[in-house]
């Protein structure tokens, strides 16, 4: 028996466990291909929970308005909460500079060629960051609707932004990403009157087709329009997070399918 493989992981797997046959042994493993990242993410979440802070991962395609949303959110909550931001971009400190200009601590991760953040990059960043002085930590992921969805960073919630200039079919085209949303924000809503083919109802229907029941909100960060529901969502998420931490519990963002996966795999 050993720690690295799943010898006798459950009674259901016993048939796969160590069984030498002519020098060939099949060992059951039942581990995610991203197991190393997922272990690091669990560790990151412990850091966040220890400080009783709420960590939110923002994901969208490039230019959907993640940084603009953060700027507007900082302006609105400046007197209420202490906010910090970890920025992920392929290159440049631009986004971190925009956040620092608002008087809020920001750490820029430049990923070079990597088109997503992973739990190890975030861990390195958070050890150089005043976590103890924060209420809410935002992680702005690299603008990309594909792989950021697969890498748990240790956040509690995923917020996915879809700007109205991108088309209302995006949830259907990028199901892995939109299924991971705990909240969908339709951004740049001030432009809706100029666009004849973006239907917020259709965008929502495409999300519902992914068996997602999460809230959908419309806002325009640059015009400070429709921010209230988003700010209220943040307030209640922070209250829930603190109540959870006080009970010794934590929460992972959607989709939380690992249990089902392992259950299935063990069949």
């Amino acid at each position: 028996m050993c720690d690295t493989c799943g010898c006798n992981i459950t009674p259901g797997n016993r048939e796969f466990a160590y069984k030498p046959v002519n020098g060939t042994t099949a060992v059951a493993v039942l581990k995610s291909l991203l197991a190393r990242n997922d272990d690091q993410a669990i560790h990151n979440r412990q850091h966040f929970d220890r400080q009783r802070l709420l960590t939110i991962n923002l994901m969208s395609s490039p230019g959907s308005g993640k940084t603009a949303l953060l700027e507007a959110t900082i302006d609105a909550l400046r007197n209420e909460y202490r906010i910090g931001v970890i920025e992920g971009d392929l290159e440049t400190e631009n986004d971190a500079k925009r956040i620092r200009a608002k008087g809020v601590p920001a750490h820029q991760i430049t990923t070079g060629s990597a088109c997503h953040l992973d739990a190890h990059m975030v861990h390195e960043a958070l050890h150089q960051f005043p976590l103890a002085e924060l209420d809410i930590l935002f992680i702005e992921n690299v603008g990309n609707l594909v792989c950021p969805a697969s890498f748990d960073l240790g956040q509690h919630r995923n917020v996915v932004l879809l700007s109205v200039t991108e088309g209302d079919d995006k949830p259907a085209k990028y199901p892995v990403m939109f299924r991971a949303a705990d909240l969908l924000l339709l951004t740049k809503s001030d432009l809706l009157p100029l666009l004849d083919d973006f239907s917020p109802a259709r965008a929502e229907a495409n999300l519902r087709n992914l068996a997602s029941t999460v809230p959908v909100m419309q806002l325009a960060a640059r015009k400070a329009l429709g921010l209230q529901p988003w700010l209220d969502w943040l307030r209640s998420e922070l209250a829930w997070q603190r109540a959870r931490v006080d009970r010794g519990e934590t929460v992972r963002p959607r989709p939380q399918a690992d249990g089902a996966q392992l259950h299935e795999a063990a069949k």
């Binding site: 060939t24 099949a26 068996a211 399918a257």
Partner: peptide, 19 residues
């Protein structure tokens, strides 16, 4: 649309045959 995924998002290493 109130469904749970039973199978379909796996990326699992199931087993390895060691010689």
């Amino acid at each position: 649309c109130h469904t749970q995924l039973v199978s379909g998002d796996e990326m699992l290493l199931m087993s390895v045959e060691l010689i």
